[in-house]
Amino acid sequence: MKGKTLWGIIFGLVVTNCLTIALLLNNGKTSIATSSNEAATQSETVAQIGDEVINRQEWLAELENRFGKTTLENMINKKVVEELAKKYDIEVPEKVIDRELMMFKATYNAFGEEGIQEEENWREQIRYSILLEELLTKDVDVSEEEMRQYFDANKQYYQIDTSYHLSHIVVKTKEEVSQILKELDEGSSFEALAAERSIDEITAANGGDLGYVSENSNNYTPKKYVEEAGKLKKGEWSNAIQIDDQYAIILLHEKLDGVAYRYEDVRDQIRRQLALEQMEGNVTTKKLWEEIGVTWFYGNQD
């Protein structure tokens, strides 16, 4: 599904860019000082290797050399998109963000615990991605017939099973699982216990996080997990679940109710997907820069 993949790539780049901006801006904030202490701040040691030191000024200079141009470009892109969206009166309704967030969660299985904690940031990134796509494709014609045919051929991608975002802890014995349940009841962190005790090495390193699973998941999640998850409330963990000769506890982070989207629900998304496919190598913000008029530290935007 080329258009779906392309949307995922664009959204992934947007997320990466936003996270990069946040990281560098946070670092930058720490370097701002009044004139009286600016020199001391810049000469502050951030690392010491034997007798050698790296000071803050050297560190920030290296960050600027490595990431400065890309970070500034991303910041400009965001401003350009916001201003042109106002110019063309393009808005993204909350229900559209809700739907695309749900589809992205269920389809790409990309939201872990951090994603839940920072959901407002994810929503803003989705909003930005949609605005960018709308601006890039506003002059591309896609017929109603093409969109209908696309929807009919790809209906399965717009039908989401009821899904559960789970974490688990897997141990070998009844005694171990009983002890873990006791510690959870006493207030211990599920993620910490998973990292420390779970014998599933793949998920233990991430606090036991399994991502989103459903009855039709292809990630080999035991069906008992889905059955038990349906009995839990958000934030609750299960009793011991026996899986072959092992025992598990699952924690429910979030439930996504299943839905089958209609053509009318996803028509605009399909239009953007098909328009982006038509554009092929022309998916760039360069024209947007030219339209609004951008000058910057690095000269030409090429």
Rank of each mutant, 00 (worst) to 15 (best):
W122K: 04
S217K: 03
Y212V: 05
I130E: 02
G12T: 12
A229T: 04
N219H: 13
D89C: 01
D268F: 09
L19M: 10
H168K: 05
E146R: 08
L84S: 02
A85Q: 06
A22S: 14
F151T: 03
L166V: 07
Q278N: 07
Q48N: 07
Y164D: 01
L256H: 11
S143R: 10
D302K: 13
N239G: 14
K29C: 01
R267H: 07
S36A: 12
Q42A: 14
D161H: 08
N282C: 00
K95W: 06
F190M: 03
R272A: 07
L256A: 01
N26S: 15
N27V: 13
E236G: 02
A61P: 00
I199M: 12
N109C: 04
E133I: 14
W237A: 03
H253L: 04
F11V: 09
K69D: 05
I243N: 10
H165C: 02
V81P: 00
W296R: 10
M147L: 10
N206P: 00
D268T: 13
N77D: 12
F190G: 00
K79R: 11
T30C: 02
V53D: 06
S198L: 05
S35W: 13
I9R: 14
L136I: 15
D139S: 12
I9W: 15
Q246I: 14
G281W: 12
M279H: 05
V266Y: 04
T107G: 09
D185A: 14
R272P: 02
K86P: 00
E176V: 08
N37M: 11
N239M: 08
S43K: 15
K87T: 11
F104W: 11
I160P: 01
R271D: 02
Y247C: 04
V170P: 00
V226N: 02
N17A: 12
R267C: 01
E196N: 09
Y157W: 15
E64D: 12
I180G: 03
D51C: 01
E134D: 13
N109W: 06
G230R: 14
I250H: 01
G50H: 05
N37W: 11
H165Y: 04
V171R: 02
E291F: 08
E62Y: 11
A39Y: 13
D161V: 06
Q149D: 12
I21A: 08
V226E: 02
L63R: 11
V15Y: 09
Q159T: 15
T16A: 14
I243R: 08
Q179E: 15
P222K: 07
E94F: 04
G207H: 02
K231P: 00
D89M: 04
E183T: 13
A33V: 09
L288R: 04
S143C: 08
S143T: 15
M75C: 03
L184K: 08
L181H: 10
L288G: 03
E228I: 11
V15G: 00
M147F: 05
M1D: 08
